[in-house]
């Protein structure tokens, strides 16, 4: 029986990684364009509760996912206006978005307290493939959004490094003056990718709600996943492919406390066990910031710096 639990734990890690992949990809697109959006946690929460309310009242989880994603883009729009158009301090703007999003989500979530989603996003079944020991539950028993998130990450990688608009996006984050000299609008590119990033984060938040949590637990619904996603982008060196593996790794630390509890392994108190994902993220961040590794990571050079054209 013991082996079985660990297979399920690994399967859960892949599942839980879905939100991390989507949220971190959203942050990655935003940051590649040179905009730092620290508001991910607030966006996740607001889109989660929006998707819940829509799915609950319409009875359609897919409508919930769509509305949740759009709410994500909407909130990212606030950040885009503040940081790109009005050139506000992006760090403080992102934090304001977290606080606003948390308050808004809890306000909207009042009627949802104590309710559960009636129909959840269900894992797919691939017939006999899903029954293969070990691989079956991990690879062939996930839900459609989990598969989609991995596909989106792979396509994002191709887009970023193999396409013309991907090149323009990377250039906007590294050297906006050159992009501007090419006759492209830096502001428009930054706004577009900030919105698109918000859309992905919103999808991640909605999935977390409709496939994982199933009930609204206020801020504990996301429990800092947005911040882990931001660290994950650094961990992955702003590259989508590495992000998939990082997300599964962090996903493992996120679900481990629950597995250990289910296994009745209690030599570490459960409250302390819950520190694990944050501790792991912290250690990863510090380990990555040795000057020798930092240069290789490839942070966008103009990240967080508003672009102002030199007027002649």
């Amino acid at each position: 029986m013991n082996g079985n639990i660990w297979v399920l734990a690994s399967a859960d890690s892949v599942a839980i990684a879905t939100t991390l992949i989507l949220a971190a990809l959203g942050a990655l697109f935003t940051e590649r364009a040179g905009v730092l959006n620290l508001g991910i946690e607030g966006i996740l929460l607001t889109s989660a509760i929006s998707s819940f309310l829509v799915a609950d009242s319409s009875g359609s989880i897919w409508l919930g996912l769509i509305v949740g994603s759009l709410v994500g883009a909407l909130l990212a729009g606030i950040h885009a206006v503040l940081s790109v158009v009005l050139r506000a301090n992006q760090i403080v703007a992102g934090l304001a978005l977290v606080i606003f999003g948390t308050g808004l989500a809890n306000f909207l979530g009042k009627p949802a307290e104590g309710k559960t989603v009636t129909t959840l996003i269900k894992p797919l079944s691939f017939g006999p493939l899903s029954d293969i020991p070990l691989i079956g539950p991990i690879v062939f028993r996930q839900d459609p959004i989990t598969y989609a998130s991995i596909v989106i990450a792979i396509v994002s990688s191709l887009y970023l490094f193999r396409s013309r608009p991907g090149l323009e996006l990377r250039a906007t984050g590294d050297d906006p003056a050159t992009v501007d000299a090419q006759g492209l609008s830096v502001a428009s590119i930054r706004i577009r990718y900030t919105l698109f990033g918000g859309l992905l984060v919103g999808l991640g938040g909605s999935w977390l709600m409709l496939a994982q949590s199933a009930a609204w637990h206020q801020a504990a619904t996301t429990n800092g996943v947005g911040w882990i996603a931001l660290a994950l982008v650094v961990f992955a060196g702003w590259r989508p492919m590495r992000l998939i593996f990082g997300a599964i790794l962090f996903g493992f630390t996120l679900q481990l406390p629950f597995t250990l509890q289910a296994e009745q392994i209690t030599f570490i108190p459960s409250a302390l066990m819950q520190m694990l994902p944050y501790l792991a993220t912290l250690i990863a961040l510090i380990a990555l910031s040795r000057p020798s590794t930092r240069n290789k990571l490839g942070a966008p050079k103009s990240l967080g710096i508003p672009f102002v054209r030199d007027e002649r």
Partner: peptide, 25 residues
């Protein structure tokens, strides 16, 4: 819902940040 207080707090900061632009430029 008591959370209206926290929400307003965030909204005030968002507007203040936007308003900064009119102060600086």
């Amino acid at each position: 819902p008591i959370h209206i207080g926290v929400m307003l707090q965030g909204a005030i900061l968002l507007f203040a940040l936007g308003g900064e632009a009119f102060r600086r430029y």
